[in-house]
Amino acid sequence: MDSSDWQAVTLTLQLGGYTTLILLVIATPLAWWLARQRSWLSAPVQAIVALPLVLPPTVLGFYLLIWLGPEGFVGATLESLGLQHLAFSFEGILIGSILYSLPFAVQPLTESFRQISQGQLDVAATLGAGWWRRFWTIVVPSCQGGFLIAATLSFAHTLGEFGVILMLGGSIPGETQVLSVLIYDHAEAMNYQAAENLSLGLLLFSFVVLMAVYTWQKRPTGGARYVAR
């Protein structure tokens, strides 16, 4: 691989790492609410979260391009404050990755949280444990499988994103040219050997990730029983 390939690898890993960390922060309270509440709002919220599973990536990328670009509400607001709009930037594709991978973090955590016995939490509460202490001493250890699966799937899914990133970020080396986009660029330029090498690397990585997820799910204390469909 040449320097541009390694640059794309580094950028892709950075995007996957940031996306996964931010998603765990966002998805944890959202998944807890979905798992424990019986509000009528839970169904539409679940539908919104799951939209990226059925929505063409280019559709999401198109709307984000409009909203985050110089003519969109977010982009125009940023420019009015003297800042740069987010289209064709790393920050822009990061937002796109977070939204597109959201169900891969929320759904495993939701299924894992649903397995927590309310009786355990009630007993801890009667013993004087506050909400945060109950969460960190009961929920997190019991749902470590759900957290691991959510993080693994979110990271792996981010590495394979293409449509959202191409629509929102284009192919700017060092800024938005991640591995999936670079493979497309190589294929378009008929540099099939380079495209094949990168594709094979992603294929093997994806296989290893799915093997790890399925292996973890077979454990007796494996947490959430979820694999992206």
Rank of each mutant, 00 (worst) to 15 (best):
residue 126 T to I: 01
residue 175 E to L: 11
residue 28 T to F: 05
residue 166 L to S: 07
residue 117 S to N: 12
residue 229 R to F: 06
residue 62 F to Q: 02
residue 50 A to C: 14
residue 143 C to G: 09
residue 148 L to P: 01
residue 17 G to N: 03
residue 115 Q to M: 09
residue 86 L to R: 02
residue 224 A to Y: 05
residue 135 F to P: 04
residue 39 S to Y: 05
residue 19 T to Q: 03
residue 84 Q to E: 15
residue 106 V to N: 10
residue 124 A to D: 05
residue 129 A to C: 12
residue 97 S to H: 05
residue 137 T to Y: 04
residue 176 T to E: 10
residue 127 L to Y: 06
residue 7 Q to D: 15
residue 89 S to D: 06
residue 179 L to M: 15
residue 87 A to N: 01
residue 80 S to P: 00
residue 5 D to L: 12
residue 39 S to M: 10
residue 22 I to H: 07
residue 142 S to I: 00
residue 20 T to D: 11
residue 18 Y to D: 00
residue 76 A to P: 00
residue 43 A to S: 11
residue 177 Q to A: 11
residue 142 S to Y: 05
residue 179 L to E: 03
residue 113 F to L: 08
residue 115 Q to T: 08
residue 222 G to D: 01
residue 78 L to Q: 13
residue 73 F to K: 07
residue 196 E to I: 04
residue 94 L to R: 06
residue 75 G to N: 13
residue 203 L to N: 08
residue 115 Q to A: 13
residue 22 I to Y: 10
residue 50 A to H: 03
residue 183 I to T: 06
residue 161 E to H: 05
residue 43 A to M: 08
residue 133 R to T: 15
residue 79 E to D: 07
residue 177 Q to C: 06
residue 142 S to Q: 15
residue 61 G to K: 14
residue 208 V to G: 04
residue 56 P to F: 11
residue 79 E to V: 07
residue 216 W to K: 11
residue 63 Y to K: 00
residue 217 Q to L: 11
residue 229 R to D: 09
residue 89 S to C: 05
residue 31 A to H: 07
residue 19 T to M: 08
residue 173 P to H: 12
residue 212 A to T: 12
residue 111 E to G: 01
residue 19 T to C: 04
residue 83 L to F: 15
residue 90 F to M: 13
residue 141 P to K: 09
residue 18 Y to C: 08
residue 149 I to E: 01
residue 203 L to F: 15
residue 99 L to I: 14
residue 88 F to C: 04
residue 185 D to W: 00
residue 200 L to C: 04
residue 140 V to R: 11
residue 30 L to E: 09
residue 36 R to D: 02
residue 77 T to F: 13
residue 17 G to C: 10
residue 90 F to P: 09
residue 89 S to H: 09
residue 168 L to A: 08
residue 137 T to R: 08
residue 166 L to D: 00
residue 168 L to T: 07
residue 78 L to R: 11
residue 63 Y to I: 03
residue 20 T to Y: 03
residue 32 W to Q: 06
residue 110 T to N: 09
residue 81 L to M: 14
residue 96 G to A: 10
residue 1 M to C: 07
residue 126 T to A: 06
residue 213 V to H: 06
residue 166 L to H: 03
residue 177 Q to P: 04
residue 156 A to C: 09
residue 73 F to D: 06
residue 48 I to D: 02
residue 17 G to D: 01
residue 168 L to N: 07
residue 20 T to S: 12
residue 18 Y to L: 14
residue 107 Q to D: 04
residue 206 S to W: 03
residue 131 W to I: 12
residue 162 F to P: 03
residue 155 F to R: 04
residue 143 C to H: 04
residue 91 E to Y: 10
residue 80 S to H: 14
residue 149 I to W: 01
residue 141 P to A: 13
residue 216 W to N: 08
residue 154 S to Y: 02
residue 87 A to L: 05
residue 44 P to K: 09
residue 135 F to D: 04
residue 116 I to V: 15
residue 1 M to N: 07
residue 1 M to G: 14
residue 36 R to Q: 11
residue 169 G to E: 09
residue 2 D to H: 05
residue 45 V to Q: 02
residue 147 F to W: 13
residue 120 Q to Y: 03
residue 67 W to P: 00
residue 141 P to N: 10
residue 30 L to M: 15
residue 179 L to N: 02
residue 191 N to E: 15
residue 130 G to A: 06
residue 15 L to F: 11
residue 110 T to A: 12
residue 160 G to C: 09
residue 64 L to I: 08
residue 33 W to A: 12
residue 5 D to W: 02
residue 40 W to H: 12
residue 118 Q to R: 14
